[in-house]
Simulated assay, not measured.
Amino acid sequence: MTDPAGGERARSAVTVSDDPQKKRYEARIGGEVAGVAAYIRTHDMIAFIHTEVRDEYEGRGVGSSLARSALDEARAQGLRVLAVCPFFDGWMGKHPEYDDLRYVPASQVTD
């Protein structure tokens, strides 16, 4: 993919993996950690609490790759998602295909 400045954008080079020991998803480009999404997890829910992309990797799809991979994994594991992190909350707001994952407290459920 080419960016507006004519350089190559390496979205496809972003790989995301879960590091349960550190309680975060890590996005890597060329083996380097480009960004992370920290979480708290229970048996039925995952709360994303902080997302950070290193400055030199901004604009390369790192945050989106983190969100999409983490949310796809949450769906596969049957987890509800609490988007405490403003990035995750905003990203989910722009991608309604993930609305079904949102955790809604019982006090806010309406029939």
Rank of each mutant, 00 (worst) to 15 (best):
H50S: 10
T15A: 13
E97Y: 06
C85Q: 02
I49W: 05
Q77E: 14
E32D: 14
D44H: 00
L101P: 11
E58H: 15
L101M: 12
Y25V: 04
A70P: 11
A34L: 04
G31K: 07
Q77V: 01
A10W: 11
M92Y: 04
I49C: 08
E8C: 01
V53P: 09
T15G: 06
G90R: 03
M92S: 00
D89A: 13
V36I: 15
D89F: 10
A34H: 05
V14H: 03
A27P: 03
I46R: 07
K22F: 08
Q21E: 15
D19R: 13
A13R: 15
A34P: 08
D55Y: 11
G59Y: 09
V16I: 09
G35Y: 00
F48I: 00
R28A: 13
K94P: 05
A38W: 13
G35M: 00
R75L: 04
R9I: 12
V53L: 09
A10M: 10
P4D: 05
D72M: 10
G6S: 10
H43A: 15
V53F: 01
A27C: 08
L79I: 08
G90N: 02
G63W: 01
I49R: 06
F88R: 01
E58F: 12
A5F: 13
Q21C: 08
M92Q: 04
R28N: 07
I40L: 15
E73C: 04
H95I: 06
V53Y: 06
G31I: 01
L101G: 10
V36E: 12
S17H: 15
K23I: 03
P105G: 01
A27H: 02
G30T: 15
A37R: 04
G6W: 11
E8A: 13
A5S: 13
L101C: 11
A74S: 11
R24L: 10
A38S: 15
S12T: 09
G31W: 09
L79Y: 08
D99M: 02
Y39I: 13
I40R: 15
D19S: 12
R80Y: 10
L101S: 11
A10E: 07
A5T: 11
V62P: 03
A27N: 06
G6P: 11
A70C: 08
I49S: 09
M92H: 01
G35L: 03
P20M: 08
P105A: 05
E56K: 13
T51D: 06
D55A: 15
S64F: 06
T15D: 14
